[in-house]
Design a protein around this nucleic acid. Structure first.
Length: 766
RNA sequence: UCGGGGUUCGUCUAAAGGCAGGACAUCAGUUUUUGGUACUGACUAUAGAGGUUCGAAUCCUCUACCCCGAACCA
C-alpha cells in the first residue's frame, strides 16, 4: 500500500484508497470471472492485470472464477486453457480456480427466499411474448399475466422447474421489480431459465440455470468480493446487480465498478470474430502467432513481462479507447532487449567469397552474446572461413544515397570479424546475382579498419559451410485496416500477406540452445523457436518482432488509408432524447405557476437562461422565493443558488439552515470572507443547520488583505520555490497562480487572494 | 418514457479550483563493430459557445459528437 509512487494511479485505486480510509472496507478482494467459452486475449490480460494487480498491491486476494452458468456454450477445454494462461501471465489464484456452478444450490435457495418474499415469480410467457411485454426504450412494458401468482403457486412451480418437470423454455423465474423502469434491465428480469443440457461440471444435476444478472452478484457476495470490476457495457446492469445484492440476504455487499475494455488498432478482439478467424481457417488456430490471444502471443514469443508492462502503460479509465499497437510492440522490444542473447542469422542469403582467404582455412572467432550497454556475460564461437553468407539486402550494386552497406569497391566490416572489400560480382546468364567476390584484410580483426580506407558499415554473416538451415516465419499484422471492425465485414480487411516463411542460414549454436530462449538476430529482430513445429532436426523460428528500423521504415508502411469509422446504423438512426432545457420547458407548459415565474423573473431582471433554470421545476422557484423573502436581491440570490446550491438529481436540496443565514453569508462574501470560503460555507449551511456568523468565527474565515499580515507568507512562498521564481521571471507567468495558491493555502484560506496576487506580482518583480 | 456512460497532444493517460505533466508515436541530434540500445532536443492537446471566480480542463448553462442498453448470452 505504500509503494503507491511507482504504481499506476487510476480512478479505481483512488476509490479503493477512499474505501480503506473511510473504513468501508478493511481489505481488498477482487475476481477475474471469465466464461469458459473461448480463449483469453490481450483484452482479458488488461482485466487480469487490473484485478490481480489490485490484490497484490493491497495485500488482498483475487479469485479466478469461471462463470459457467450456460452449459450450452461452455467446455472443459476452455477452462484448462484459461487457467493456464492466467498462470503463465504470472498470477496466483491459489491451488484451484473457483466455479459459479459450485454455488448453484445456494443460488437456488436464495431464489426460493425471493419467491417467499414476493420478489420473484414464475412466468409462463414464451420468449416472443416476454420481449413484447418488455416494451421498448421509449415505452414502458406491461405486466405479465403471471406476475400476481401466489407465493404458494410460485414455490410449487419453481420446485417443479428444478425437478425437471417442464420443457426448455416453458417457464422462467423472474424478479418482480418494475415493468416501467427506464432501465430495461429492471423490467422484471429473468433469473432462471430451463435448460435440459449437460453441464461440463454438474452433468445433468440441474435442469435450470441462473442468468448472469442474477448469478454474478451472488457469486461475488458468496466469495466476499469487495470490488467487482467489469467493463463499461455492464453499466446498465449495475442497478440490477445492486437489487440482487440487496435482496439476497448475504452479509457481503460487493459493489460493481466499470472501466473501459481494451481496444487495439489493426486487430479484432471479440470472441465471436476470433472464433470466425479460427473456424474459417484464416489462421492456424487459437494459438496462431498472429492472433491477439494470450496463447497466440505466447507462441509468437511475447513474454508475460511485456504484456504486464503494456497493461501498466495503457492505464485504466472510462474513455472508450483504442490503443496504438505500437505501444504493445514497444513493450515487447523493451522487454526482449534486456534478455535476448544476440546471434547472427541470414534471412535471405547471398554467397560472399574472399579470394585472398586460404581455401582450407577456418578460424574460431569469439563473439559476446550481449552488447556492452546490456552488460550481461556470455559468448560463443563463430566459424569464419572463405565462403560466407550475407544478407541480400546488405549489398547493392548501385547504392542509393545513405546506403551504409556493401557495394562494389567499398569496405565494410563483418560483425565480430574482418573488414572486406567488394571486388566484383558474379551473375548468371539471366543477370541474377550469384556471388560477391571480396578481399579481406587480415589486419582488421581487432578493431582497426583497413589503413587509409573508409569502412561503410557493419553487416552480419554466417559461414557457408558451418551454418544451419532454418525455417523462419515473419509475421505482419493480420489486418490492413486500422479499425477492422468499423464496417460491417471485418474479414474484407484481412492482410493476405501476413505470414512469410523462408529458409534462412543460422549459426550452429542455435541448434543446441533451449527451446524457449528468445534471441535477437542481430540487425533483424527478435526470434524464438516455434513451440509446435521446431525440432532438433528441423529448426523453425518465429519472428517475435522486428528491430526498430529507421532505414527501411518508409518501405514497410502499411496501408495508409484508414477505414472511416462507419457510423453504426444504430446510432445514426437513434433519436435524440429530450435535453434538460426541453424538460424544463415542458414542465412550464404543464404548470402555469412555473410559466408565470419564468416571465416574472425576466421582468425582474434575470437573464433568460437563469430564469429558465429557476422556473424549470417547483423546487428551484421555492428556494429562490425563500431567499428573496429573506431580503436578497433577485440577481444575487439567483447567482448563488445556481452556482452554489447543492443538488440531488438536479433538484436543489432543502435549506437546512435559516434563510437569514444565507443572507448573512452573502453579505460576508462582499469582502469579509473570500469567495472560496463563502462557497464552501454555502454548501455547509445547505446541508446542515448552522450559523454563518459562528462558522466564520470558528473556522477563522475572516479575510486578511493588509500587506503587513500577508507579506510574511508571500515572502515565505517565494523563498520556498526558487526554481519557480526563476521560471516566472523567465516568462512563465502562469506560475503566479501557483504562488497565489501556495499563499492562500498556507493562510488556511484567510489571505485575500486578490491582495496576495498584487503583492506577489510586486515582490516577484523586484 | 428513453435511460446510462463518455469527449485533454496523432494514440493512451495524469492534473485537492492555482505549473496542462508522463508514456508511445513522429522528427532532429549525440554515442555505437546492431541503421538496435542509451542519451539530448523538438513537436503537438483541454470538443464548441456562454457564465461564476482574483484564478476554470476541473463548478454552472446550452450545443455538438461518440459508446452502451429492448438475448431464456456473459
Amino acid at each position: 500500500m505504500s509503494e503507491s509512487a511507482s504504481r499506476p494511479r487510476d480512478f479505481i485505486r483512488d476509490m479503493i484508497d477512499a474505501d480503506l480510509a473511510s473504513g468501508k472496507h478493511t481489505g481488498v478482494v477482487t475476481r477475474f470471472p471469465p466464461e469458459p467459452n473461448g480463449y483469453l486475449h490481450i483484452g482479458h490480460a488488461k482485466s487480469i492485470c487490473l484485478n490481480f494487480g489490485l490484490a497484490e498491491q493491497y495485500g488482498g486476494r483475487c479469485n479466478l472464477r469461471f462463470d459457467d452458468t450456460n452449459p450450452a456454450k461452455e467446455d472443459q477445454e476452455y477452462v484448462d486453457s484459461i487457467a493456464a494462461d492466467v498462470r503463465w501471465l504470472g498470477f496466483d489464484y491459489g491451488p484451484e480456480p473457483l466455479f459459479a456452478s459450485d454455488y448453484f444450490e445456494e443460488m437456488y435457495q436464495i431464489a426460493i427466499k425471493l419467491i417467499r418474499e414476493g420478489k420473484a415469480y414464475v412466468c409462463d410467457l414464451n420468449d416472443e411474448e416476454i420481449k413484447e411485454y418488455r416494451g421498448s426504450l421509449k415505452e414502458a412494458g406491461k405486466h405479465s399475466p403471471y406476475r400476481d401468482r401466489s407465493v404458494e403457486d410460485n414455490l410449487d412451480l419453481f420446485t417443479r422447474m428444478r425437478a425437471g418437470e417442464f420443457a426448455n423454455g416453458a417457464k422462467v423465474l423472474r424478479g418482480k421489480i418494475d415493468m416501467s423502469a427506464s432501465n430495461m434491465k429492471m423490467r422484471d428480469p429473468l433469473l432462471y431459465r430451463i435448460r435440459h443440457d449437460e453441464h461440463h461440471r454438474t452433468g445433468d444435476a440441474w435442469p435450470i440455470y441462473p442468468m448472469y444478472d442474477y448469478a454474478h452478484p451472488l457469486e461475488d457476495a458468496i466469495e466476499g468480493i469487495t470490488h467487482s470490476i467489469c467493463t463499461l457495457e455492464f453499466e446498465n446492469n449495475r442497478e440490477l446487480y445492486d437489487w440482487v445484492v440487496d435482496n439476497a440476504g448475504l452479509p457481503c455487499k460487493p459493489e460493481q465498478t466499470e472501466f473501459a475494455r481494451l481496444g487495439l488498432d489493426y486487430t479484432v478482439m471479440s470472441k465471436r470474430k476470433l472464433l470466425q478467424l479460427v473456424e474459417q481457417g484464416h489462421v492456424s488456430g487459437w494459438d496462431d502467432p498472429r492472433m491477439p490471444t494470450i496463447a497466440g502471443m505466447r507462441r509468437r514469443g511475447y513474454r508475460p513481462e511485456a504484456i504486464r508492462r503494456f497493461c501498466d502503460m495503457i492505464g485504466v479509465a472510462k474513455n472508450n479507447s483504442v490503443v496504438d499497437i505500437g505501444k504493445l510492440e514497444f513493450a515487447v522490444r523493451d522487454d526482449l532487449n534486456q534478455i535476448a542473447p544476440r546471434v547472427m542469422a541470414v534471412l535471405r542469403p547471398i554467397r560472399l567469397v574472399m579470394s585472398n582467404y586460404p581455401a582450407g582455412k577456418s578460424e574460431q572467432l569469439v563473439a559476446p552474446y550481449f552488447p556492452a550497454d546490456i552488460g550481461k556475460p556470455g559468448e560463443r564461437e563463430l566459424c569464419f572461413d572463405r565462403e560466407l553468407y550475407i544478407e541480400a539486402d546488405d549489398f547493392a550494386e548501385e547504392p542509393e544515397k545513405g546506403f551504409r552497406r556493401l557495394a562494389p569497391g567499398r569496405w565494410i566490416r563483418l560483425r565480430y570479424g574482418y573488414c572486406v572489400r567488394c571486388d566484383e560480382v558474379i551473375k548468371d546468364d539471366a543477370g541474377k546475382l550469384q556471388e560477391i567476390r571480396c578481399t579481406y584484410d587480415p589486419a582488421t580483426l581487432a578493431g582497426e579498419g583497413p589503413a587509409g580506407e573508409k569502412v561503410w558499415g557493419v553487416i552480419h554473416w554466417v559461414s557457408a559451410r558451418h551454418s544451419l538451415p532454418a525455417e523462419v516465419r515473419i509475421y505482419d499484422r493480420l489486418f490492413k485496416a486500422e479499425r477492422p471492425d468499423a464496417g460491417d465485414n471485418f474479414l474484407q480487411h484481412i492482410n493476405e500477406d501476413s505470414l512469410h516463411s523462408r529458409i534462412a542460414r543460422v549459426e550452429p549454436s542455435l541448434a543446441s540452445d533451449s527451446a524457449d530462449t528468445h534471441f535477437q538476430f542481430e540487425r533483424q529482430g527478435y526470434f524464438v523457436k516455434d513451440s509446435v513445429d521446431s525440432s532438433s532436426t528441423g529448426l523453425v523460428f518465429n519472428r517475435v518482432i522486428g528491430l526498430r528500423d529507421s532505414w527501411n521504415k518508409q518501405s514497410t508502411e502499411s496501408e495508409a488509408a484508414t477505414t472511416p469509422t462507419a457510423k453504426s446504423a444504430r446510432s445514426a438512426t437513434r433519436p435524440k432524447s429530450r435535453s434538460k432545457a426541453e424538460i424544463r420547458a415542458g414542465a412550464r407548459e404543464r404548470h402555469p405557476v412555473l410559466a408565470e415565474r419564468f416571465a416574472r423573473y425576466q421582468e425582474q431582471g434575470l437573464s433568460e437562461g437563469d430564469a429558465d433554470l429557476l422556473s424549470g421545476s417547483p423546487a428551484w422557484g421555492e428556494r429562490l422565493e425563500t431567499l428573496l423573502g429573506a431580503g436578497l436581491s433577485i440577481d444575487v440570490a439567483a447567482k448563488w443558488l445556481i452556482h452554489e446550491q447543492p443538488r440531488e438529481q438536479d433538484e436543489p436540496i432543502v435549506f437546512a439552515s435559516e434563510p437569514a443565514e444565507f443572507v448573512a453569508l452573502v453579505q460576508a462574501a462582499e469582502g469579509r470572507i473570500s469567495t472560496a470560503a463563502a462557497r464552501k460555507l454555502w454548501a455547509q449551511l445547505a446541508h446542515e443547520k448552522g450559523s454563518a456568523e459562528s462558522s466564520i468565527r470558528d473556522q477563522g474565515l475572516e479575510q486578511r488583505s493588509d500587506d503587513a499580515s500577508i507579506l510574511p507568507l508571500v515572502s515565505a512562498a517565494i523563498a520556498a520555490h526558487p526554481d519557480k521564481v526563476a521560471a516566472y521571471r523567465g516568462g512563465k507567468e502562469a506560475l503566479l497562480g501557483f504562488f497565489v495558491g501556495q499563499v492562500v493555502r498556507e493562510s488556511k484560506g484567510a489571505a485575500n487572494p486578490e491582495a496576495v496576487k498584487a503583492l506577489l506580482a510586486a515582490e516577484l518583480a523586484k
